[in-house]
Design a protein around this nucleic acid. Sequence first.
DNA 1: TCTTAATCGAGACGGTACGTCGCGTCTTGCA
DNA 2: TGCAAGACGCGACGTACCGTCTCGATTAAGA
Lengths: 196, 196, 196, 196
Amino acid sequence: MSPTPPRPRSGNRRDEAARDAVLHAADDLLAEKGFGALTIEAIAREAGVAKQTIYRWWPSKVEILLDTLVEDAERQLPVPTDKATAASIRTYLRKFARFVTHDAAGKVLLALLAEAQHDPETATRMHQRYLGPRRRQELELLKGAIDAGEIAPRLGPDAAMDALIGPIVYRALTGASIPRGFVDALVEDVLRPRTG
Amino acid sequence: MSPTPPRPRSGNRRDEAARDAVLHAADDLLAEKGFGALTIEAIAREAGVAKQTIYRWWPSKVEILLDTLVEDAERQLPVPTDKATAASIRTYLRKFARFVTHDAAGKVLLALLAEAQHDPETATRMHQRYLGPRRRQELELLKGAIDAGEIAPRLGPDAAMDALIGPIVYRALTGASIPRGFVDALVEDVLRPRTG
Amino acid sequence: MSPTPPRPRSGNRRDEAARDAVLHAADDLLAEKGFGALTIEAIAREAGVAKQTIYRWWPSKVEILLDTLVEDAERQLPVPTDKATAASIRTYLRKFARFVTHDAAGKVLLALLAEAQHDPETATRMHQRYLGPRRRQELELLKGAIDAGEIAPRLGPDAAMDALIGPIVYRALTGASIPRGFVDALVEDVLRPRTG
Amino acid sequence: MSPTPPRPRSGNRRDEAARDAVLHAADDLLAEKGFGALTIEAIAREAGVAKQTIYRWWPSKVEILLDTLVEDAERQLPVPTDKATAASIRTYLRKFARFVTHDAAGKVLLALLAEAQHDPETATRMHQRYLGPRRRQELELLKGAIDAGEIAPRLGPDAAMDALIGPIVYRALTGASIPRGFVDALVEDVLRPRTG
DNA sequence: TCTTAATCGAGACGGTACGTCGCGTCTTGCA
DNA sequence: TGCAAGACGCGACGTACCGTCTCGATTAAGA
C-alpha cells in the first residue's frame, strides 16, 4: 500500500551530519570571529571535517552561507502569503528589521550582501538563491495589498519595496539601530495605507 | 598593466608622486579587476612602488580607499551648505544616486561599506572619515530646511536621512538602477515638502 | 586509456578478471606514464575496478608490481638449472641484460629496486619474493659451474654474482645501454672460464 | 690594493642561514625518517623555514638533495687527479664503497639514483650535476693509468668504470655489505693491473 | 529453493602534502 | 630619511591521493 517506497539513497551517499557540521561551523565562525576568520580551513577545522568534503559539496564559502541564509530566512522570516494587508506588511518589515539587526542569521545576509560587492559571482548567486525568490514573494504581497485597496504607494511595487527595505538594511550596514517607530513611519510614508 | 615609466627618486621627503601613483593604482584596480584583485602587492606592482612605501604611509588598503573616497566625494558630491531648501536636498540626492551608481568613486563607497561588514576596524574608520562628517553636514541641511518650514518629515532628521539614502544605496548594492522619479518620490514621501 | 568494456560481475569468489585488469593496468601505467602516475586511484580507474578491490587483495602497489615481476621474470628469464656451464651463464646474463634494458617487465624490476631505497618494507618484500629466490638459483648455477671446473672466479659465488649483475643493473639504472661484448668481457674477467 | 671589492650583495639578498638549514634538514630527515618522510613541508618544518623560501630557491626536493650530494661528494670523495696509478684507483674505489654503504651522504646518492628511476627529470639533472662530471674525472684517471701502463682493462674505460662501480652500487642498493677484498678483487679482475 | 556470505563498482570520508599567492616585516644600497 | 627591490615566516588557497568505510547489486555455496 505504501506508494513507491522512496529509496532515494543508493550506494555511497552524502553524510548529512557532515553537512550540518559545516553549516553550523560557518555560522558560528561568522558570528564569533567575523568574516575575516571565515576560511575554508577554519570551517573544516571547526566542523571536524576534511577540507575536501567541503569542496565536494560547495564551490565556495559563499554557497555555504547561502545555504544557511536560505534555510534560516525561510524558517524565521517567511513572507506572509495569505493576507495581504497593510498590517501584515508592517509585521513582516518589523520582523525583517529584527532579523537583520539582532539575529545571527541576519549577519549572514549582511555579509553576503557585502561580499556581493567584492565578487560578481556572489552577486549573481545571491540574486538567484535569495534576493530574487524573496523579492517575488514580497511583490506578490505588495500587489495584493494594492489591489485590495489597503495601500497606495506613490512608487511602483519594486521601487516601493526598496524604499522600505533599503533604509532598514542601510541602518544595519552602518551599525545603526532601528529606532522604535521607524518601520511604522516608513510604511506610513511610502505605502500610504488607507487603513490600520 | 601600464608599466609606468620610472619616476625620479625623491630623497628624504615624502614622495608625492608615489602617493598619487598608489591612489590611482588602487582606484584603477578596483574599477578594472574588482575588489578581489585589490591586493597591496598588486597596487605596488601597478603603481611601480615598493610595498614598504605603501605600508609606511597607509595602515591598510582600506585607508587608501578612504583617501580616494574622501577626496572624490568632497569634490564631486559636496553637501549644499548655503541654501537649505527642499530643492537643494532633492538635487543633492539626485547627485548622490548618480555618484553611487555611475561614478567609479561611487564603487569605492560601496566597496568600503561592504568591507566594513567584514571587518570592524574598517567600520570604525569609515564612520570617522566618511559617514560621520558627511552625516553631520547632511543633518545641518535637513534641520535648516525643517526650520525654514520647507519640509516636514514624519521621522527625525537622522532617521529621515537614512530613509532617503538607504533605498538609493540598497538599489546600488543589489545592482538595481535608480529609475527616473525614484529620488523625487522618496523626497515627497519622506520629507513631505511644503513647496516644489 | 582503453575504457575496458564492463566485465561481468563475479559474485562470491575472487574475480580473476579483476586481478588481471589490475596487473595490466599497473604495468601499462608504469610503462606509459611512469612511476609517478602509478597511484592506486589511477590503477583502479584504468582497470575499471573499485579501489577497495585492490586493497582487498594487495597491501600496496609494490605488491602489485612484485606480482607482475615474479610472473614475468619466471616466464621470460628462467635461471638455467640443468647444465651449469660457462656458456649457459653467459646466455643467462645476456638475457638478463636484454630484460633489464629493453623489456617492459625489466622497468618493473628497476622501479622496485628504486622503491626499495625509499621504503624498507619494499626492500624486505623485494628480497623475499624476488631477489632471494632468484639469487639462490643463480648461486646453484654458479656453484655447479665451479664444481665442474668450468669457471674459477676469484670472488666467492655471491660476490661474483654481484660483480656480474651489478654492472648490468648499474648501466640500466643510469640509462646507459649495454654495449656489445660487455657481458662477455664481464664473464671473462670475473668468472675466468676455463672453456668456451 | 684589494682588486675590485667584490660587493656581490646588492639590496636584498639570499639568506645563507636558511639555505644551510634546508640542506641540513633534508639530510637529517632522509637519514632519520627515510625518503618517504622527505616532504617539502617536513623540510620546511624541520629547518624552521617557510615553504615558499624553499620553492624560491629549489624547484624540487631532488635539487636540494643534489646540492647536498655534490657538496659532500666533492669534499669527502674527490677523484684523484694527480697520480693515475692502480693504487690510487683502488683507494678511490675503497672510499667510494665506504661512502655508499656507511656514509649518510652515500644514502643521498642511492636515494637520487632511485628517484631517477621514477622521474625522468631527476634522471636528467642527476647526470648533469653528479654522474656526468664525476664520470669525466673518473675517465681521466682511468685513461691516465692505462697510458702509464699501470692497468690493462679488457673493457673500454667507460664500461670498465661501470664494471667497478656497478657491483659496489648494486650491493649497496640490495642492502648487502661490501666484503673485505671485494674491491681489490674487482680491480684485479676488471683492470688487470701490471703492478701492485 | 532459499538464505547467507563474500565480492564487486562506486564513491564519500578524515587526512596529508602539494605548489601558489598574498600578508606584513625586514634588510640593503642608492639618492 | 625615503625609496625600489625583494627575501623572509606565515597561513590559506584549491587539488590529488591516501587508506578506510559503507552502500546496494550480484552470484555461488550450503541449509
